[in-house]
């Protein structure tokens, strides 16, 4: 059996600091997509609460309990982050491990929202610490999570290099504009 070595999706591209903004990699732990079967939304909600704590999130919301985060992820979908999903959830819908499918980057600092304003067609000033938006960053589909002190951006792992490049470019542009006064 070949002994495979896990590689870093960012390949040394992060962290990036420019002006007041900082972009760094985050390890979100296990990630699983939850998609309840038709008419099983309430059963999935109850099973999720019993097994991990958070309920099935309403559109645009994040439910947190201990290490477990249930993140709204689209119509009829949530992403369970931080814990390995309990087998009991499988009775009520699709449960799919996507841990290696996504990368997470945290953008913090005073200029963070100015940076994303150049890339994302949504006003993120309204995004509170328990909020999430599914939107686009450049041409990439992403999820942007509000956290205290910044945002976390989820993108496809295969697009990690593009994500780091797009955001780092915008960070330098915002920092350059600030330096000009």
């Amino acid at each position: 059996m070949v002994d495979l070595i896990a590689s870093d999706p960012w390949a040394g591209l992060l962290p990036v600091q420019a002006g007041a903004a900082r972009l760094e990699a985050v390890d979100p732990g296990p990630l699983a997509l939850l998609a309840p079967w038709p008419r099983a939304e309430e059963a999935m909600n109850a099973a999720l609460r019993a097994a991990h704590g958070p309920g099935f999130p309403a559109p645009g919301r994040i439910e947190t309990s201990g290490a477990a985060r249930a993140i709204w992820f689209g119509r009829g979908q949530a992403l369970l982050a931080g814990v390995v999903p309990d087998p009991s959830l499988r009775a009520h819908g699709l449960v799919e491990d996507q841990s290696d499918g996504w990368v997470v980057a945290r953008l913090t600092g005073d200029g963070a929202l100015d940076v994303l304003a150049r890339l994302v067609p949504v006003d993120l000033r309204r995004l509170g610490p328990k909020g999430v938006v599914r939107t686009m960053l450049g041409h990439m589909n992403v999820a942007i999570l509000g956290t205290s002190g910044g945002v976390e951006i989820l993108a496809f792992r295969s697009m990690a290099g593009t994500l780091a490049h797009e955001i780092a470019d915008a960070m330098r542009a915002v920092a350059g504009r600030a330096a000009l006064g």
Binding site: P59, G60, R75, P121, V122, V133, R134, T135, M136
Partner: peptide, 10 residues
């Protein structure tokens, strides 16, 4: 109805 007002490009 789920996401609010969004730009046409989405």
């Amino acid at each position: 109805p789920l996401c609010g007002a969004r730009d046409r490009r989405e």
